[in-house]
Amino acid sequence: MNGWARFALRRLAGTAAVVLLLSIGVFGLLYLAPGSVQQTLLGTRPATPATIAAIQARYHLNDPVAVQYLRWLGGVLRGDLGTSIRTGAAVSGMLGERLPLTLALTGYGTLLAALAGIPLGVLGALRRGRATDRLVVTAGVVGLSAPPFAVGLLLLVVFALGLGWFPVYGTGEGLADQVWHLTLPAAALAVGAVGLLVRFTRAALVRELEQDYVVFARARGLRAPLVLRYALRNSLVPVLTAAGLIVTGTLAGTVLVEVTFALPGLGSLLVDSVTFKDVPVVQALALLLTLLVAAVNLLVDVGYSLVDPRVRLGGAA
């Protein structure tokens, strides 16, 4: 267990370092935005000496940039993400309102992708070279190459407008109703992810099924389900890698899908804030996404160590 704790601590420290490094870039967004910093922060307000002085005082623009960064970082760590230029509201509050929806959408989409993609990949590997396999692989390629917003529109037209099974927009009230409302957007996100998962799962399992230990297991008479379990367990590492990619990819995909389905999540907030050059909100969103992606990667690393004792016990070969 000692080895495992050391492993987890090391990974945690690495993740913290990466997030800190990226936060510099996120802060730099303010200076990268076109136009002067004052203009950016003024937004649509008139540029009078009074407003400019107010901005300078509020954001300490006369301090060295490093001090500004540290002050900003200190605020972020205390939960103060600044105020929105567009609405004048606290950014942390805006994010807090919208985060649950995006997280729910991402989680739901990933779950749908896993429920469809992994079994299909296993099926393809077990029926390798036959018609089922070819169908699964082709479907995977189609899914991978379909952009989520286009799939979203298609789903809306067929299942919401045509068949009327699902609502066209909105988030719904109560758990069941919310799930019902989120099903189409989640499905739109999942389609591409299913394709990726099918390919990863199938390739990993095909490779494992050809390994010596599988032949040896069959040769000494182990029953087929047990042999399959040997191979599946060993294909988990690449599948976990794919799952990590899918969660982060789905998170990014919410931007377009939330707009398509008119959902008030982080994605639609990002689109609005970019359009209005609402830099504090964009900064906060970028930082939040960085944090989420880093957290997912950390979870995947911890997942590896749970799946494969060689990772946590530090053994090689």
Binding site: Y213, R233, N234
Partner: peptide
């Protein structure tokens, strides 16, 4: 002997 056993069991 390096490949005939299931590495995760």
């Amino acid at each position: 002997p390096f490949t005939l056993l299931n590495p995760l069991r």
